[in-house]
Design a protein around this nucleic acid. Structure first.
Lengths: 141, 141
DNA sequence: TTAGCTGCAAAAGGTTTGCAAATTA
DNA sequence: TAATTTGCAAACCTTTTGCAGCTAA
């Protein structure tokens, strides 16, 4: 797929004095191949099809490192699990409380809100770490 | 404190064929005495000062019943724990990713956003179950 | 009396950690 | 070689559940 991108990310590890390992290659490849967001569990399953020995804890540790590098972000979609995605995909998540459907909406939808809150409360909204809850079209009817 | 309110909530249990018990009295009293939001853990501690035998599982079950009655809501403030509050307090929560501070803002701040999303995506935003993340004034500086 | 609650202990779900062994640079 | 990563197992934290006993109506 996007092997140039893979190499670019691996280079970031090297630049920090980190190592480029088989699990890391596999995990980043898995992320690049995934749709917009994956749970740690889903990513583990993907990685393990080719590399059965890569352990869940390695996935979590790698995801944490990737967040440190600014390459990955996580979002809490609901009670418990989080999803991870490449941080250049600047969208937000609306989660239906009733059926669990996730609707992705562009960041720009939030700019008005963010400005208002910034002005009134001095709080800089960066909603990436939490989804917005509500009810989707079909559950509203 | 607001014992009329306590009795009103207890009456809701009775109306549904439920029972009014000592733990329930204690838990609702604890909620009424708490500030705007408490974790299940904090509430347990509060309740147990007067009623050491009330078990965590009872707290969770009572909170769930109160949510059923529409008296209580919960919000996920972050990685793991949720906070509970009386549902007539119609505010939203902004959580600072950096220092954990919770800023409460009136619901009305969100109406513009909600309308826009409703129109564009048919999604009815009810952000009560999730906090909005970002950075507070002092962590932005 | 009899549903409905409660306390306890144990499980569950997702994530983190300690440590010795393996691996990268 | 030296420092970083890994796999494993076990811990962790918050919440849920099964069940027998208790209790409000």
């Amino acid at each position: 797929m996007d092997s140039a991108r893979l190499e670019r990310i691996l280079a970031m590890f090297r630049d920090r004095g980190g190592r480029v390992t088989t699990p890391r290659r596999a995990i980043i490849t898995g992320l690049l191949e995934s749709g917009s967001h994956v749970t740690a569990d889903e990513l583990t399953a993907t990685v393990q099809t080719a590399h059965p020995d890569v352990h869940t804890s390695t996935i979590y540790r790698c995801l944490a490192s990737l967040e440190d590098l600014g390459v990955v972000d996580h979002v809490h979609l609901g009670h418990g699990r989080a999803v991870y995605h490449l941080s250049d995909e600047t969208h937000q998540h609306l989660v239906c409380e009733s059926c669990g459907t996730v609707v992705e909406v562009p960041d720009t939808v939030f700019t008005g809100l963010a400005k208002g809150i910034q002005k009134q409360f001095g709080f800089m909204v960066q909603p990436r770490h939490f989804a917005i809850s509500g009810r989707c079209r079909s559950c509203t009817a």
